[in-house]
Amino acid sequence: MVERQSPLEPVLHPGSHGNFEHGVEIILSETRPGSILQLAAWPGQEKALMAGIRTVTGLALPDGAGGGVTDGVRSVFGFAPGKFTMVDEAEGLASAFADVVTPSIGTVTDLSHGRTAIRIAGPKAEWVLAKFFAIDFALPAFPIGAGRSTMHHDVFAQIQRTGADQFDIYVFRSFARSFWKALCHASEEVGYEVQ
């Protein structure tokens, strides 16, 4: 199998950077999932779609806008009415959904190449992300598993909280390198490690 090229390759420098003498408070990494799908239901078919997600992945989506769940391998979250981002470490998830999300329920759109997944973790993750996005990252406002669609100037982002101190950010592939550089720059103040 041919390996996919990451847009971050030339700028992803593993190791500690910035003001890390007092400790590393941010860990940045690219998660490189095999599959990133958009699953979208027609109005009224949201529950059917959520059931389909459960059938294929075993993940039970909570009700409510922006709800999501992760099992560490597969993650899913709502980002718009009736629309979900579904992520799997393995490739080929689109075909698994092809029979489940029928035309009467909604559509499946493969974005596995189109989005780059960046993970930011550590005690200062909220602090660094708050430099970019005008959304409330505090845990009560943004619970674990939940997803948000937002933007930093021209860069559209979907963000899922996958841990108390951990967020997975999905950005358009073409913007990924610029965004990564900005993320590193913003993390220098607190010291960061690239994995």
Partner: peptide
């Protein structure tokens, strides 16, 4: 409200939040 009326039921959760 959503311009698409059929989405407004989805909004309920957020309003409750």
């Amino acid at each position: 409200a959503f311009a698409r009326g059929d989405h407004n039921s989805v909004a309920r959760h957020r309003a409750e939040d």
